[in-house]
Amino acid sequence: MKSLLFVMIAGLASAAMLVSCGGDGSKASASGPFGEIPSLVSDFETFSDAKRAELQGGGEDNMKKILGEMKAAEEKFKESMNAAFEKVKGKEVVTEIDPELPLKVVTPMKIEDISVSRHLVKLVGELELTATAIGFDSYEPTDAFELDDLVVLSYDNNGKPFAYDGLSKDMGGEPMPAGSKVPVDTHIHIESYNAASMGCLSKILITLKGSELYDQAKAAADALKGK
């Protein structure tokens, strides 16, 4: 009986943890590689939205008071974001590649920088070509694999995609042979609607825009936005 009770309690705890990492507007977890950054963005955006709604109440004195509160909150937000970044700077994010692409991971993407004002986390890494490839549309017949529109998909701890961002690569307009190293970087957008999922990011996956994996991530992201 005691063991059964333990199993039930453990199951409830696991379920609660999954809910807290969902995209349902709940408090963002700090268990993912981005640490406290998603929850800070979520809290700041919630506060800012509430204050902007208060501004509609009118009155010059009321407006000055609210604007002062918003400015103070923004300064605090900047300080907290920079402190949170220092805790996760250099942390690696599990990086996977769409098996349809002629790429493999040499150095997993890791956290290099943030943009506080734009709510971005910059990741950098290095990939290797496993076949001859070109970085842009060749506009001419070629046997090289075209890696024109690479994107990064974000997955939560349930293995579900929920966001997508562009991937920049150090490749020119000429074919590069297999074995060539390709430095890459991306800027992951954290918004109030995806902060809960970003809080428990489990991995990122690199694919091409327009692929089936990309379409799945885009549909999930649109659903979170409420489109």
Score class of each variant (00 low, 15 high):
76 K>S: 08
138 S>M: 08
160 K>I: 01
70 M>V: 12
160 K>V: 04
93 V>P: 14
162 F>I: 03
145 F>M: 05
78 K>S: 14
165 D>N: 15
67 L>H: 02
150 L>N: 03
116 V>F: 14
144 A>W: 06
129 L>S: 11
79 E>F: 05
172 G>N: 12
114 I>D: 11
165 D>C: 08
176 M>K: 14
68 G>I: 00
130 T>H: 11
65 K>I: 00
83 A>M: 08
133 A>C: 06
133 A>P: 08
94 V>Q: 15
125 G>E: 07
171 M>Q: 08
105 V>W: 14
140 E>Q: 13
158 N>S: 11
118 R>C: 00
141 P>T: 05
93 V>E: 10
105 V>R: 07
94 V>E: 14
104 K>G: 03
101 L>V: 04
150 L>T: 02
121 V>Y: 04
73 A>I: 05
71 K>Q: 11
133 A>M: 05
110 K>A: 12
74 E>C: 04
126 E>H: 01
116 V>C: 12
105 V>T: 11
92 E>A: 15
173 G>M: 11
93 V>M: 06
131 A>K: 15
100 E>D: 15
138 S>H: 13
143 D>E: 15
160 K>R: 09
133 A>S: 15
99 P>K: 03
98 D>R: 04
120 L>N: 02
91 K>Y: 02
74 E>K: 14
166 G>H: 06
66 I>D: 01
94 V>R: 14
133 A>N: 05
168 S>M: 07
161 P>I: 07
147 L>A: 09
108 P>T: 06
133 A>L: 09
87 K>Y: 07
108 P>E: 09
71 K>N: 08
136 F>M: 06
116 V>R: 10
68 G>Q: 01
82 N>F: 04
86 E>K: 15
92 E>R: 13
91 K>V: 07
137 D>V: 09
98 D>Q: 07
156 D>A: 01
110 K>D: 08
90 G>I: 07
101 L>T: 04
162 F>L: 04
120 L>K: 14
171 M>A: 03
106 V>C: 08
96 E>N: 15
93 V>A: 09
128 E>V: 11
144 A>Q: 10
148 D>I: 00
76 K>F: 00
155 Y>C: 10
152 V>A: 05
169 K>S: 03
138 S>Q: 13
83 A>F: 04
105 V>D: 05
170 D>G: 00
176 M>H: 15
104 K>V: 04
152 V>N: 01
121 V>P: 05
94 V>H: 10
66 I>K: 00
87 K>R: 14
81 M>T: 07
